[in-house]
Amino acid sequence: MTDRGRGALRQSRDALTVGPSSMHWRGDRLEIEIDERGAPPLFGRLRGHIVLTPKAISGVELPLTPDGAHVWRPFAPSCSIEVALEAAGWHWSGHGYFDANFGTRALERDFTDWTWGRFPTGGGATCFYDARRRDGSRLAAGFRFDAEGKAEAVTPPPPARLPRSLWALRRETRADAGYAPRQVKAMLDAPFYCRAAVRTCIDGEETTGVHEALDLRRFRSPLLKPMLALRVPRRARWRFD
Score class of each variant (00 low, 15 high):
S12Q: 11
G178T: 07
G103K: 04
R195C: 03
R45C: 01
L139R: 12
E172C: 06
E61H: 10
L16A: 12
C194Q: 06
A141I: 04
R13G: 07
A141M: 09
T208P: 04
A190Y: 12
A106T: 05
G117D: 05
M23K: 04
A160T: 00
D215C: 05
G204M: 09
R171A: 05
Q183D: 09
A125G: 06
A197W: 06
D189G: 11
L139T: 04
W92S: 14
R26E: 15
L52I: 15
Y97C: 05
E152V: 07
C194V: 07
P77H: 11
W90V: 02
R182V: 02
K185R: 15
K225P: 00
L166M: 08
K150R: 15
W72S: 07
Y129E: 09
A177K: 14
M187N: 13
V198Y: 07
F240P: 02
R234C: 10
R10G: 04
M23P: 01
L16V: 14
P63C: 14
P77C: 11
P157L: 11
P66N: 10
G178F: 09
A100I: 01
R47A: 13
Y179C: 09
H211E: 09
G103I: 02
R29C: 06
E152G: 02
I34R: 13
T53E: 15
E61G: 02
R109V: 01
G48P: 05
D146I: 04
R132Q: 15
L228W: 07
D176E: 10
G48D: 13
A39T: 06
E148P: 00
H211P: 00
A76D: 04
S78I: 03
P74A: 13
A147D: 13
E33G: 15
T200P: 02
R4N: 03
A141S: 15
T2D: 07
E82P: 00
G123C: 04
L139A: 08
E61P: 00
L16D: 08
H95I: 06
A151I: 03
R195K: 12
F192L: 04
T104R: 15
L85C: 09
Q11N: 05
L162S: 01
P66Q: 10
E148R: 13
W167Q: 08
R235T: 06
M227Y: 08
R218N: 05
R161C: 03
R37M: 08
D67K: 08
R231C: 07
S21A: 14
R73Q: 13
A69Y: 03
T53Y: 06
R182P: 01
A8T: 01
G96F: 02
L162G: 02
S221D: 11
D28H: 14
G204V: 05
G27S: 04
L162K: 02
L85W: 07
F240N: 03
G27M: 05
G48I: 03
T53V: 10
I32C: 13
V60K: 11
R231L: 14
W116F: 14
E33V: 08
